[in-house]
Design a protein around this nucleic acid. Structure first.
Lengths: 212, 212
DNA sequence: CGACTTAGTGTCGTCAATACACAAAGATGG
DNA sequence: CCATCTTTGTGTATTGACGACACTAAGTCG
């Protein structure tokens, strides 16, 4: 016998915690389950790995299929393998984290995405499976990564004001920072380039920046 | 039909990169493959997930079975899912990193471990599967984590001198640091407690410390 | 055109990180 | 036993990041 691994194989799935910024607060994208188990409950988007598909590609595909969201950055932050976490059969879940600019949320407009919805982190519904745990871990991973400012660009439009960048930073790390200090930090990191354009709102126009 | 996932399931395995310190240099533990494929080649210890077994437990068990090494710390650092990475069938590999005190290497003495051997990182043999890639990623993950001194304790005996701790630190991050500065850093972190004992070598005795 | 609101800037104190040099303790060998 | 060698062990000065703090600039709205 060429291969001695006699045990049954588990199913392998990717689950994705997609975060965006709405009105300055982090929101997570959930889908309403159409079938059993946990029918009608909310869950992280995700699904099963296909033959000859890489895990990263699976996460990207499932996210697109279930929510019509195209993720730029997709980072793996952990596996979930507790026996019984899926009542149907053994499922190993490979968990990913993604960030999305608020602008790109055309969920309601998209037919496939009727069941997808953004939830503020302080107004979460009951989650299916062990997705509450996965979400907790996703937030921890996000906070750890946020000290580097680069990932935050994914939460913002291509060009943004420093106030927007600071808002994203504060939302992710969960505390406020002093404006002058934040700008000093950004200057030190040299991760943005100033443009010649300004955005005109209700008050003094703000200069637009772009990733360096 | 209660369950609509019609695709074949992949096999799931854990692979472990165990590092230790020998003569001041990092070494990795490899096993010689007894069967096809890659028979006779060296590989990271690892093996397939069993029913109702958590991934962490699988890594710990496989490591024990194949090398008789008991790992204290076992950290997940990535998944490897390229189709074709195992010629037999689709295998998703969940990769772990472990550190081991040099004292505990009783490999030769153990019957099961006849095929296990430590290799210096600059004298590696050809590795089976994509284990060279996995090892590269393990080293990167190790370097990233080493800034915190805590994990290094696993590389050292229960009580150690500051020179030993500094040696471990240097081996892991791959560069030398200044003695006074290193000691200042350790003092700031307050992660060790001094003992009343000294180790007597060929020269001035060095005070022993233990994790705080 | 006055009031309001947001954008944008500089200083100082503190603290961590870097560079650097010499004294203390014990072992060894003549 | 004394000189030499090797490793342990310590203090200071400088630099750059981080945190607190207050005002001016520019445009909108009424």
């Amino acid at each position: 016998m060429a291969f001695t691994y006699a045990y049954p194989h588990p199913a392998v799935a990717a689950d994705i915690a997609v975060f965006t910024l709405r009105r300055g607060a982090l929101h997570v994208l959930l889908i309403e389950r159409a079938g059993e188990p946990f029918k009608g409950a909310w869950a992280l988007p995700g699904g099963f790995l296909q033959p000859d598909e890489e895990l990263d590609a699976c996460a990207r595909r499932e996210l697109r299929e279930e929510t019509s969201v195209e993720a730029e950055v997709l980072v793996h932050f952990g596996n979930f393998s507790a026996p019984g976490r899926d009542p149907r059969e053994r499922v190993i879940s490979v968990a990913y984290l993604a960030l999305l600019a608020s602008d790109e949320l055309r969920l309601a407009a998209d037919t496939d995405a009727a069941q997808a919805q953004w939830f503020a982190l302080d107004a979460l519904p009951e989650l299916a499976f062990d997705h509450a745990t996965i979400l907790q871990r996703a937030l921890a991973a996000l906070g750890a990564r946020a000290r580097e400012v680069q990932p935050l660009f994914a939460l913002l439009p291509p060009r943004f004001t420093l106030s927007q960048l600071q808002g994203a930073y504060e939302a992710v790390i969960g505390e406020e920072v002093e404006k002058r200090n934040f700008r000093k930090m950004v200057a030190t990191l040299a991760c943005v380039r100033e443009t010649e354009d300004f955005v005109h709102g209700a008050h003094r126009p703000a200069r637009l920046y772009e990733p360096a």
